[in-house]
Design a protein around this nucleic acid. Structure first.
Lengths: 335, 335
DNA sequence: GACGGTTGATATAACGTTGTATCACACTTT
DNA sequence: AAAGTGTGATACAACGTTATATCAACCGTC
């Protein structure tokens, strides 16, 4: 194992000063064509790669971004990450991804780590019970921050989804098909996202004069969806449709129906949320609310870049609408 | 937005020199109990967090690790990453995860980025046609590196799976059940992993005196598995069992069988690879080759730590065996 | 009261870069 | 020939840390 080549090595081998080597490689200052080429050649030969940590320290141009997300194995999130990473990479930023697995302690450790390791910007899905201290810390260090999905109302830039509107759309669709007993399945607690969705659900159930709202908790996994759907149907056998908090829960719910000998869409309709790749693939294909995660990730990244470009700008909140994608798990009720 | 607090700020507020502040916070040198406490108090008050980039520059202790993986949305890989990240985090390392999406150009850009941003170690699943230059670069910069899964035979530390052995186990299981026409489905090209698996498959087919081997390409996704399984059965209707290159392909293959009106395990058996969480959950539950991804990730991390601790040590290759988990997609052939 | 030893704090240089000021030299212009 | 104008390169300081050397003050000892 050899030692990492440094700018001093380039300078020595090219027979110039360190300052000259630096300027030659970056095309700044007044350097003759001849030396510029010689320096470039030497740098290539000894495989010189600049150390951007040292450069950032001097120039203040820090191109490392941290991304804290709630769960990475969720395909919707993974797609968002791809969108953000691709856009930032094109601007020569390096993105460090972190999966906090919906654990506040882990999240706080990771934000702390981002500061210790000098990240120049943070993208962040805040955990539900994030302490104010976490926001204070980022603010005190002047780190450009954009929150995502869950808006903590902390006077920060934010990119999210119009959750209430999305649920109104879903309930409308089911009501138009003739459903009256529609339940809300999935999520737990009352974080901003679920709160808004349930608010939209309640409002539209009332608006259309349907049955009393039923809210049923579940983790956002297939396994939990399967178990909780069975429990839901046991307690509320009159239900003919469920709107779910995520595609994974919805797929779990469909599996539960199949196990109970019920065909999704004929007797009981199911709507998901996220339009993950798998939603289209599963049998029967899932009706779901779609929000184009890749584009959302790009919007997120762009919001951060704007903030970095102008730290004084007042905070921006960007919200995108969800679109109902009608597939095979919704239909008129048969009983 | 305020400016980031620095050690100089702590020192000024505590009325001591910068050197004293540094030593007080880290517990090195000879500093009185009184000043030590005063400095700690001031640091807490102004929310000082040390800049480890500057510290690493001076002390040489670099605790940033880069992890380049082929595809992150693959749940097996995600689990490996969790194992590695958890162990390294406990040792105060920060891990940056990168998804190169099986694209050599992207991979090379990311390795380059790791060097530019001064990562002190790299975990890496090398892309299939990785140029030698990529290895040269890491070597020239003296960066401790452990390859994972795909062994490029580059005299580097490596953690992997006994692929040939795993396929012998799978073929044995099917042969014991009475299958003769067993196909290998999934993957493409001849990277080290697939090469070894196919070698094990061929060897055991010959050993047990079974039919001529059939190798069928497919991407490692459910969708591709579905499509390719249909094509495989069309071309080779005699096949009564398939061993797959991954769980996602296997699940896709089962979906294909269901669509064709065939019950997996009764007429055609299917074996997956990876034992992802979903394999146990899908209906029918998938028989698959299991390798405990979380533990594998930890082993990977530990190998890197050992290398960092002793850069002179000769390269280590660690291989773990896969275990066959028998669920519901394998059984005696009915025709 | 001069000497060696301990304690607590500080000055200084260094890590690898970059921005700015400076300098040596050649070439014009008067 | 003196003054002015570019051109090409370099010296130096700084970013935020830490390791090492140094230093002042106090202690006890003979």
């Amino acid at each position: 194992m050899t030692e990492r080549p440094t700018l001093a090595d380039v300078a020595r081998n090219a027979g110039v000063s360190i300052a000259t080597a630096s300027q030659a490689l970056r095309g700044t200052g007044r350097i003759s064509r001849a030396t510029r080429e010689k320096v470039a050649r030497v740098a290539r030969e000894i495989r010189y790669v600049p150390d951007l940590r040292a450069a950032a320290m001097r120039s203040g141009d820090n191109r490392e971004i941290g991304f804290v997300i709630n769960q990475l194995h969720n395909p919707f999130n993974a797609e968002v990450v791809s969108g953000a990473v691709d856009l930032l990479e094109r601007q020569n930023y390096l993105v460090s991804i972190f999966d906090m697995r919906d654990d506040v302690a882990r999240q706080d450790r990771q934000l702390q780590a981002f500061i210790r390791h000098g990240r120049g910007g943070v993208l962040w899905v805040p955990a539900l019970d994030t302490p104010d201290e976490a926001f204070e810390l980022l603010r005190a260090h002047g780190i450009p921050t954009v929150t995502f999905l869950r808006n903590p109302g902390q006077n920060l830039d934010h990119v999210g989804i119009r959750n209430a509107e999305a649920l109104q759309t879903a309930v409308d669709h089911l009501a138009d098909l003739g459903h009256k007993d529609i339940a809300y399945l999935g999520g737990q607690g009352m974080g901003p996202v679920r709160r808004d969705r349930i608010a939209g659900y309640r409002r539209q159930m009332a608006e259309r004069g349907l049955a009393a709202p039923i809210i049923w908790d579940s983790d956002d996994t297939k396994q939990a969806g399967l178990v909780q759907m069975q429990a839901l149907m046991r307690d509320h056998p009159q239900v003919t449709a469920v709107v779910c908090n995520g595609d994974m829960v919805a797929i779990g719910a469909c599996l539960a129906l199949v196990r109970m000998g019920i065909q999704p869409s004929r007797e009981v309709s199911v709507i998901g949320f996220d339009d993950t790749e798998e939603a289209a693939l599963v049998i029967p294909p899932l009706t779901t609310l779609s929000v184009a995660p890749y584009k959302l990730g790009q919007k997120l990244a762009q919001t951060l870049l704007d903030r970095i470009a102008d730290p004084q700008m007042p905070p921006v909140v960007a919200e995108v609408s969800a679109r109902l994608v009608t597939r095979a798990t919704t239909g008129a009720p048969q009983r």
